[in-house]
Computed example of a mutant assay.
Amino acid sequence: MAQEMLRCEPAEIDRLVDAGLPFEDRAGERFFDPNDLYNLGMYSNRTNTQPELAFRMLFRFAGRSVEDLLREKAWDFRVRLECVECEGTAPWRFEAPDVVRFGGRVAGGAAPEACAGSAEYAATITTTGARTPLVSTELRRLTREYLDAGYRWQMIPVAMQADHELVHALGATSCIAASLHLAERFRAAGYRAEAKRGWFCGVLGGALDLPHACVEVEDEDGALRTVDIAKAQLAARLSPDTGAFQELCVGSIYNKVIPSTASGNASFGHHECGSPLPVQVRADIRAAR
């Protein structure tokens, strides 16, 4: 997997290991953390690694006209919840899509019924966009200060992202860690703010389930606005032609994000059966035809 992901030869993998790339020895074979491999490829500047190619494809929309991001967009939204080592039939709690307050619609979407092992949620979600840039000069200053701080976006396990102080102390960031950190800065400046989780849509036809988070903040005019700090940061890294999209991320909403009711460091799902292991949540989100 490492050779395929990084597009390199065995000798190059050996050099990476000698330089400190951690691995686990399993019966004489080396197994690497996929996050480590992704981050290596992302910043390798080889241009042909899987992470670099995926990143360019993921953000190809960011250099286009943002008008497409402001229109209504319908998504076939399906989530499967799996309770590991399930203790039996019990109610489910699922942090469902929360698009109505942002001008969107939900068709279907019945809450999962009590059962054992696994459950599903399905709905057609309609999202929309709106230009609502931040009004507060202080909120804009804090946002720009964060973007200029030089944190390096990385793939980080979701559990570690919740410890945003540790992540930023390492000079790294991610959508969840960045949103938790920025929400804290906004609150310290006297604003009501909360990091919220959701789903980033249209990624590889729905096959890639990316954790996503943003900041919801009450602006000085009393309106609730969204700061999608990590997407602004990633777009800036991709190309200088993404300025319009970066500005959209600072206060506005766009149709490729489905917000949920989950807070920034919370799980999307929980099963009341008593299993000590977290529920696995897998989303499949595809553009509706």
Rank of each mutant, 00 (worst) to 15 (best):
A27H: 15
G150R: 04
S260V: 01
L182T: 01
A169F: 05
F268E: 04
E82T: 15
S118W: 09
A122R: 11
F59E: 01
S275Q: 01
T261V: 11
A177K: 05
S239Q: 10
D148P: 07
A2Y: 01
D68R: 12
G129Y: 08
Y121V: 02
A193G: 07
G117V: 01
G109D: 02
P22E: 12
R192D: 10
Q246H: 09
V215A: 00
E138G: 12
P211Q: 13
A96F: 03
A107L: 14
R144P: 06
D76P: 05
R141H: 13
Y146L: 12
Y38H: 12
R282A: 06
M5R: 15
R185K: 14
V281G: 02
D228F: 00
G28R: 06
R93F: 14
T128G: 11
L182D: 02
Y146I: 09
P97C: 10
A169Q: 08
E120R: 10
M1P: 12
H181V: 03
A107S: 13
E120I: 03
E4M: 15
S136W: 07
I125V: 12
N35V: 08
Y146M: 12
R144G: 12
G274M: 11
F245T: 05
E138I: 14
P34H: 05
R152Y: 07
T124P: 05
N255H: 06
Q161C: 09
F32T: 08
T49V: 00
D18I: 07
K231C: 13
G205Y: 03
D241S: 13
R185V: 08
G202M: 02
A232M: 08
L166E: 08
A262Y: 07
A223M: 12
A232Y: 03
G88C: 03
L180V: 05
T132S: 14
P10S: 00
C86W: 01
I253W: 08
L204K: 03
A244T: 12
F200E: 04
R289D: 11
L224R: 11
R46C: 00
L224E: 04
D14K: 14
Y121W: 07
H168E: 00
E9L: 14
M57V: 11
A116H: 13
A114Q: 06
R131A: 10
R141L: 11
L238V: 04
A62N: 00
M160S: 14
L139C: 07
E29Q: 15
F94M: 02
D33M: 09
E82D: 13
C273L: 04
F94D: 01
E85P: 03
D18E: 15
L21I: 10
F186E: 01
S174W: 01
R237S: 15
T128I: 12
W199A: 08
I13D: 02
A122Q: 09
E272I: 04
E12I: 11
I253F: 10
E95D: 08
L134W: 03
R185L: 11
A111V: 09
F31W: 11
P22Q: 14
G103R: 00
G251I: 04
A110Y: 03
M155T: 10
N48V: 12
A111H: 13
L58G: 12
T226W: 10
P211G: 14
V250K: 14
